[in-house]
Amino acid sequence: MQRIHVLAMTHDAMTLKSAGPEKVKAALTKAGQSYDDPDFLESAKKFRQLVEMGAFYKGATGLSNDEASALFYSGKVAMYTTGSWMAGSIQTDAENPSDFDVVPFPLLGSNAKATDFMGGAVDSIMVSASTKYPDIAGKAAFELTRSISKYAYLDGAGLAVWKKDYDDSSVNPMTKKLADFAANATSFTLWFDTTMEAEDAGEYLTLLQELYVGEITPEEFVSSMKKNLE
């Protein structure tokens, strides 16, 4: 399963750029949108097309995330669908960090904008409703998240979700560019397997693997996803 996540990120992004954020959200949260829909089918077809034309590294399903990113860092693969965290790792793991750049995932059709992104603020700290000290606990969570946001950004491990009132000149240019993308984003859509319930998400990743290896067709993929989300 670990190896499907990179593929899933590519498919998630393609689907977002094909169907648009509202439709994706409505389908994944079971809010009246069927997954068996031309826009979702288009994304699955394009995904399959990429597999058939050899766009993915030949052994993609047999590689761990580390092995896959090592191929990218060493210049053996040309593109890598990933998240903002890689901007930090490129600085330390790639031989020539300046060789790398970041671009938003391209559009498929006209339902989405270039400024619609996958991801968003997924890490969160919560306070239990039954705590005896809601105010103090709330303040603690507040301060913790503010520091996590700041230091993750300064280290290139993530983007700042808080207003930046500190010197960020030490942050690598790629993370800064990403921060600009995020600042001008029109929407954020959580990764499919983060949004869906655990059982549906597991099924999604299995179906996607089957689509990747060609065991099912794009049509079967969307109709199975429809059943999965019913």
Binding site: I4, T61, Q209, V213
Partner: peptide
């Protein structure tokens, strides 16, 4: 090695 994959 595979976590049961690829595709089960």
């Amino acid at each position: 090695l595979t976590r049961g994959g690829p595709a089960k």
